[in-house]
Design a binder for these strands. Sequence first.
DNA 1: TAGTGGTCTAGACCACATT
DNA 2: ATGTGGTCTAGACCACTAC
Lengths: 251, 251
Amino acid sequence: MHADRVVKLSIALDRNSPVPLYHQVARELERAISDGRLTRGDFIENELVLAERWQVSRLTLRRSIQELVDSGLLVRRRGIGTQVVNDTVPRPPRLGSSYDELSERGLDPQTTVLAHERMIADDAIGEQLGLPPGSTVVYIERCRRAGGRRIALLRNWITIDAAGDITTDQLAGHGLFDLYRAKGIWPHSAVRRITARSAGPVDASLLGVALGAPLLTVESTMQDTAGKLIEVGHQLYDASQYTMELSVVEG
Amino acid sequence: MHADRVVKLSIALDRNSPVPLYHQVARELERAISDGRLTRGDFIENELVLAERWQVSRLTLRRSIQELVDSGLLVRRRGIGTQVVNDTVPRPPRLGSSYDELSERGLDPQTTVLAHERMIADDAIGEQLGLPPGSTVVYIERCRRAGGRRIALLRNWITIDAAGDITTDQLAGHGLFDLYRAKGIWPHSAVRRITARSAGPVDASLLGVALGAPLLTVESTMQDTAGKLIEVGHQLYDASQYTMELSVVEG
DNA sequence: TAGTGGTCTAGACCACATT
DNA sequence: ATGTGGTCTAGACCACTAC
């Protein structure tokens, strides 16, 4: 009972490339899926055969396959084989600014800086940033537009270390993420709490929506690769214009 | 210039356990972090030393460390070492029912089945499930409660294959995920679209909220490990009672 | 019984960061 | 120059699935 198609693949590898072999193999497999040589339901040949044919060690091959399994394109089953489950790479949630995200959707994001100042962190913010009471932080409030319409209100409380020398001009042209990276700060992980609320008078007038309009709210805390807390962010999205999309793949 | 603490760890491994060695090592490392032997900023010893001391191959050790790197607890830097970045495991978004999620938060979720019937899928739903027009699906509408309060309204359109023989009784006592798994169907990945809206008359009365109250909405499409589309789900959460939480770690 | 993926080893060499 | 993590190999044995 095997109506299932087993596809023989040929690939080209460059052993002098600085790109790791396992990644080259993964890329080739991914290409085979995206250009249709492999489609949903197809099996690839078994690991011993592929390792021999492509002249890589089995472990290296396995690592390549694992990459695609992690990203949700392949599924492995012991005793059965490795099968294509997905034609397109599901997009996992990423650390990244809404600026990048809107760009990727083909919109042309623009930013208006509404506030950019130093202030004493209130207790809640200070605690989330792990700062002693009375610490100074940089407060930034921006309005994000796309296609001429106001999409989101972005409020950030950032440690002096991370944002002390960012200028208002820089904020208008770039997402915060780019500015962090330019300073050598590497955002590493974030916790996001997502819920909804009705627009109050301030939010409504800043976003240009009716009083009581539904807003999607995201509160986040972010830290860098050294474990240092960088910022607390509150984001308010006009729900009629913005949908947050994320893919989840079972670990 | 090394104020950084390098911690010497002792661990116990059981080589006869069915649990893979790399996972045992990972678990021990995780325990060392959670019980405070390792804290943020600490370095673990280098890979050669640890592999020798714990009598595992370097590759096995690396795989253990990788587990914690993936989950955001450790960071590795070439030429420098491996360092603890996080004390607690950030919780990545997972495939799982709100039932499981509410359970984990210590609440006691209860379910009322409001509808459970076969119906002809409308065009939008049929298309999302990849079914021909006029196909029959199972429609389920449930109200999820916790702590005696109504938290969410769950609407699912499920393929006959996946839900054809689920009974109403089963639905009252279990999350849909458990029922799928019991049938040998393994949810593999989902795409979720999250936004907000104001409660309409029907939603308001079913959830027991005021007309126009803010709701968090999640629309999802899910498929199993074989790549088959299983269900489309629409979930409405009372935003005053529910916050969606997710952690994102940079890949 | 045969075939598949899952785990583990010992050893080699490379690339990068610090001193 | 030294120490760190990153890649890669060849080979072994195990666990699960199918027939």
